[in-house]
């Protein structure tokens, strides 16, 4: 991938806060069941290329709790239930003491950033997509040649 091949360079000094990572069900459990590989370690590695201070939520990886808005719940009318569902996620996040949360999935990010932070009094936790973290850590250099990658 880009980072390993040195096609992009990242600056760790930009994100110094304690950072944690949320496992989306689609990248983890569901990929594991559907494709035989759960993406648990790859995003952690990428996160840690951008952040020195990293902490895990518990439980994590295949046993991680859903954000509460999966399966279309973010677009469904059952708002109260969605927030109730998210209480477990909110506690997991708070327990880490992290001030930056990486949520790669659109849905998880919206639920945590736009709903759970407000509902569970954790507005001091910043939420970013994984690619947002990478984009914000980029060291932009004058143009050279190159080839490829994907998350």
């Amino acid at each position: 991938m880009y980072i390993e091949e040195g096609r992009i360079k990242l600056d760790k000094s930009i994100h110094q806060h304690l950072t944690t990572y949320h496992d989306p069900c689609n990248y983890g459990r569901k990929s594991e069941r559907t494709f035989g590989h759960g993406y648990y370690e790859e995003p952690r590695w990428v996160t840690q290329q951008c952040c020195e201070n990293f902490v895990e939520m518990y439980p994590n990886r295949a046993n991680n709790f859903c954000c509460g808005a999966g399966g279309g719940a973010w677009a469904a009318p059952y708002v109260e239930e969605r927030i109730f569902y998210g209480r477990v996620k909110a506690k997991q996040i708070k327990d880490t003491g992290a001030k930056l949360l990486i949520a790669p999935c659109h849905n998880c990010r919206d639920q945590i950033m736009k709903s759970l932070r407000k509902e569970y009094d954790m507005m001091d936790v910043e939420v970013k997509y994984l690619w947002e973290l990478v984009a914000d850590s980029l060291v932009v250099e004058p143009k050279e040649g190159g080839s490829d990658e994907e998350e």
């Binding site: 069900c25 459990r29 808005a69 399966g71 059952y78």
Partner: peptide
């Protein structure tokens, strides 16, 4: 529908 099909 309240279930998020998270698969845990």
């Amino acid at each position: 529908w309240v279930c998020t099909l998270c698969g845990r």
